[in-house]
């Protein structure tokens, strides 16, 4: 137990510290690297609570895709982050106030609310208890059966997102060199290779 507790506090402390550094770092590339560190530690927390599938997804999706995408954006766009951050101190009081209100609301909700226990008994848990199967197995058992509708609806949303991205950004420009496979394979030796006599010391 004590090892778990130590691991939890270690992961949690590193997450908070690196989250602060994401905002505080002067160099935006460092910010992104701290973000990746935070993601890795969040994955560690998921492992601690027994959600190993979520932990792996966290590493693959967030670190592997999202953070690398951020890194590309930060390096490819010429944004002056120092200038962007200039108003930070002016907005700090307002931001802090909103944060405080949200925190009070959350405490209010958490302490005053009552969780009704009847419903889970009525609906039944869709998956067996955590001790019996692994996360991955439990998810796989319900994702394409019980939740097939939601899965397919999400697929439709991604489909629309793809159409939208193409509609709004794709332009057919002139002078773009495209690969033409037919033209490439249709080339003959005669039109692409030329044998020339080169005089010694003369060059072509």
């Amino acid at each position: 137990m004590i090892v778990q507790a130590i691991a939890f506090y270690l992961f949690a402390a590193i997450i908070i510290a690196s989250a602060v550094m994401v905002i505080a770092a002067r160099n935006p590339v460092h910010s992104v690297l701290f973000l990746i560190l935070a993601f890795f530690n969040a994955a560690g927390l998921f492992v601690l609570v027994g959600a190993e599938f979520l932990a792996m997804i966290m590493v693959i999706v967030y670190v592997g895709a999202v953070a690398v995408l951020f890194l590309f954006v930060v390096m490819m766009l010429d944004i002056n982050f120092v200038e962007l951050r200039q108003g930070f101190l002016n907005y700090l009081p307002v931001g802090a106030l909103i944060g405080l209100i949200l925190m009070i609301e959350l405490i209010f909700v958490l302490t005053a609310g009552t969780v009704t226990p009847v419903v889970p008994a009525a609906t039944g848990a869709p998956i067996p208890a955590i001790g019996q199967v692994t996360n991955t197995e439990a998810l796989g058992a319900v994702l394409y059966t019980r939740y097939i509708y939601l899965f397919q609806a999400s697929g439709m949303i991604l489909f629309v997102a793809m159409i939208g991205a193409i509609v709004l950004t794709l332009r057919s420009r002139d002078g773009v060199r495209r690969q033409d496979a037919g033209k490439q394979t249709g080339r003959t030796r005669a039109e692409s290779v030329e044998v020339r006599k080169v005089a010694p010391g003369g060059g072509v």
């Binding site: 909700v109 609310g113 009552t114 609906t123």
Partner: peptide, 21 residues
Amino acid sequence: GTTNFDSLTTLFQGDAQAGIG
């Protein structure tokens, strides 16, 4: 504890008291 409308209907039948949350 549920997202299903039918279960919610059952839950709120009678003189249900909605908590602040």
